[in-house]
């Protein structure tokens, strides 16, 4: 060992002995916990406690419009939900909306994602990508309002072209045969860019070396997709699908602005129903029970995705 090294070690030992209490705290095992404390505080205050409160409220009969205090009714609210045919029809409508919206957005997003991935030298690619992402960054309130105007049968742009082509107008938002599709289209317009983004991120996570090796080995496009791209990109892609599923499942603002759930109940999604029970009827007990059920369904979505994602590994491990 050289003299210099010995000197350096000596200086470090002296420095250690002189370190400040702050430095000691930084190195202690409590430091990571301290860093987490602020976010934990907000998480507990804004998430955990309200959730527990909501679960509690779901067992009570309590309306803001009644002078009566909350009264414990056990699972009566849940029984009412179970027996309410309209709620089940809203659930099924929401399920169809989620499956169609997320399904179409994923297919379009993956296709367009591959297109942009494979066209890195295309002129104007950045501009095209930026324009493509605009719908995603516009708030649903603004999107809902201007799509409502676009669809408007008297002076809407969409109907101007429809009339040019067909000679008649379509009541996109008030015709029972069109309203659901019209809202679905706007959701797809808004959120396909998100799936493009996730696809590009997924493709970016594939190591170049493996892609080059696949090319050297002359793997077909399907083999490359299945053996090289999918194993690396699936997590990000599935995360995208998961986030979109949960988000589509919660869709309220868009339908509220475009159709208010109508005509009739054609676009009445479960989020809108919950909103009405909670904020129009101020029926806190019942809406809490419904919210708990929605929460459980959202959790089950997450669990199913995680399970599917790990199914192969689980089988291999078994």
């Amino acid at each position: 060992m050289s003299t210099i090294n010995i000197a350096q070690q000596g200086e470090q030992a002296i420095a250690r002995s002189r370190r400040s209490p702050l430095r000691a705290f930084e190195e202690s095992r409590f430091f990571p916990l301290a860093l987490l404390l602020p976010i934990l505080f907000f998480f507990v205050a804004l998430n955990v406690i309200p959730t527990i409160w909501m679960i509690g409220m779901s067992f009570y009969s309590y309306s803001l419009m009644s002078p009566a205090p909350p009264s414990f009714i056990a699972i009566d609210n849940y029984v009412k939900i179970y027996n309410d045919a309209d709620l089940w029809s809203a659930f099924s409508r929401t399920f169809v909306f989620v499956v169609l919206a997320v399904g179409i957005e994923t297919v379009l997003g993956v296709l367009l994602g591959f297109l942009f991935w494979g066209s890195s030298n295309m002129p104007g690619r950045r501009l095209a990508l930026t324009l493509l992402f605009v719908p995603m960054v516009v708030t649903p309130v603004a999107s809902g309002l201007f799509w409502r105007l676009i669809y408007e049968p008297t002076f809407g742009v969409a109907n101007y072209f429809v009339q040019l082509l067909t000679g008649s107008k379509i009541d996109f938002l008030t015709n029972v045969n069109w309203a659901f599709g019209a809202v679905l289209f706007v959701d797809i317009w808004m959120w396909t860019p998100f799936m493009i983004l996730m696809t590009l991120a997924a493709l970016g996570s594939v190591p170049k070396a493996e892609l080059e090796a696949a090319e050297v080995d002359r793997l077909s496009i399907w083999q490359r997709l299945w053996h090289v791209i999918w194993p690396h990109g699936k997590f990000i892609l599935m995360l995208g699908v998961l986030l979109r599923t949960i988000d589509a499942y919660k869709t309220t603002d868009l339908v509220f602005l475009m159709t208010n759930g109508g005509p009739g109940n054609v676009t009445e999604l479960i989020g809108l129903k919950l909103y009405r029970y909670a904020f129009a009827s101020l029926n806190i007990g019942f809406s809490s029970a419904l919210a708990v059920i929605l929460l459980l369904i959202a959790i089950s979505f997450t669990s199913i995705y995680l399970w599917v994602l790990n199914l192969r590994r689980y089988r291999e491990g078994a």
């Binding site: 309306s63 419009m65 009644s66 008030t174 015709n175 029972v176 309203a179 759930g261 109508g262 005509p263 009739g264 109940n265 054609v266 009445e268 009405r276 129009a280 009827s281 101020l282 029926n283």
Partner: peptide, 23 residues
Amino acid sequence: LPEYAELLAIQQEAYSAYASGQV
């Protein structure tokens, strides 16, 4: 009545269903 919002929501949805041809 204090229940007016719920009463109204029921009939508005149903009337709208009829006006639009859903029912």
